[in-house]
Write a protein that binds this DNA or RNA. Structure first.
Lengths: 222, 222
DNA sequence: TGCGGACGATGACTAAAGTCACGGAATTCC
DNA sequence: GGAATTCCGTGACTTTAGTCATCGTCCGCA
């Protein structure tokens, strides 16, 4: 994805005209990472505006015992670490390239600060963007405190399925576990449990949703 | 607390001069609630700028089985429901008066929208405010997914204690449970467990922190 | 002064989730 | 084609947390 296309998708920049986006793009440099490489670590100072151009970036937190919790996997056209960008603080999580040949546009903080001066529309966009993020966070918080693993897996499947009732699990069970805050074995067991109950069918890594309604009711906690 | 004093403490307004705050105050009306009365419910549309003037407001979410999770208890000088205020969406949680004679300043959305037009500094403040909120949320998320109840109680005690090593638990075990996502019995047991381990001493509702270091290490997950 | 309500403590039990250990299928890489 | 690696599935077990029931204390109030 080229710079302009990517910048157009960033929630707090999309309102800006094409040539302004070109200007923003020209202020940054690209960084290419291979799978697993660190983009930034928790507590690092802000690198500036970061936009994924190619590949994917995993944003996560790792606790003292090595257990990982994934906040999101960002695809081309997504910005990363907005929070630090807007408040100037350090990163609350870490980010790693999830694929080889992952490419990220980096506009350093001083340049970005000048942009926000020059284009006040960025501030409006920033508010919207932070608000969206925060609502997502609240949902995650709700899920993790008052929903069972079963409910979280059901929700994960429904979100993955979107319109189609048949789709492939692209992530490993370990990764799914990191998304919803549990471990591989529990993911495996729960998936098969849902199959036993007739809500889904599993054929290898292909999932067929048989009873969307039932699955939905499991997802929102019985 | 009078209107100006309260508005001065609101994170996204404090940068404004006194007379602007007076203007903002003059655009709102007060609402007085008795303990337990509803200010707004989850999914309600935005009421506008809300600032606690007297008493306290509990912001929480209640799941289908009646289990409550407290996001915060807001004191005079705090604003409530900022997220909905800034993005125009509905409330992600509910709010109730926690005390009798609780008083809230309400500036309706259209009036507040005019203010943001007139004073662009509000937008800057909004960003800071949302960022602070979001960092708090990330901490809560981390705590609830990768920390045990034991760790969360230890963190709660340390936060309550601040500098003093001796203090009173003002909240009931049930309320403490709602803060950290568990129930009254578990709070009680865990508190006594920490006592058995010699990190704190309990005398009625008075807590004495004996081993701050150990407690801190429990709080950040062993 | 004695009754009721709110709250805390605690034992016993159940349920849910995490850990450990193993086996086997699929994939990649010499 | 075989070794190494990665991943899935599962049984058995442990740990942690939540539920239920009961009791005692404190406090307010009629």
């Amino acid at each position: 994805m080229n710079r302009i296309e990517a910048l157009q998708r960033v929630l707090f920049l999309k309102a800006l005209p094409q040539d302004t986006l070109a200007e923003i793009g020209s202020l940054g440099r690209d960084r290419v990472l291979s799978a697993g490489e660190v983009l930034f670590l928790e507590k690092d100072p802000c690198l500036g505006l970061l936009v994924v151009l190619r590949g994917a970036v995993k944003v996560c937190r790792i606790d003292s015992r090595g257990m990982e919790f994934i906040f999101g996997i960002e695809k081309p056209g997504a910005s990363i670490g907005d929070l630090a960008l807007f408040d100037g603080g350090n990163y609350p999580a870490s980010a790693f390239a999830a694929l080889d040949e992952t490419c990220v546009l980096i506009v350093p903080p001083p340049a970005f600060a000048r942009l926000t001066q020059k284009y006040p529309a960025i501030a409006t966009g920033a508010i919207r963007s932070l608000a969206v993020e925060q609502r997502r966070m609240i949902e995650m918080l709700k899920a993790s405190t008052l929903q069972s693993v079963r409910a979280r897996i059901a929700a994960y499947l429904l979100q993955r399925a979107e319109k189609d009732s048949i789709f492939a699990l692209t992530e490993t069970n370990t990764t799914i576990g990191s998304h919803i805050g549990t471990v591989r074995e529990v993911v495996s067991r729960t998936l098969h449990l849902l199959e036993d109950e007739g809500m889904v069918r599993l054929e290898g890594r292909t999932v067929i949703i048989c009873d969307r309604v039932a699955l939905q009711s499991v997802a929102d906690g019985r």
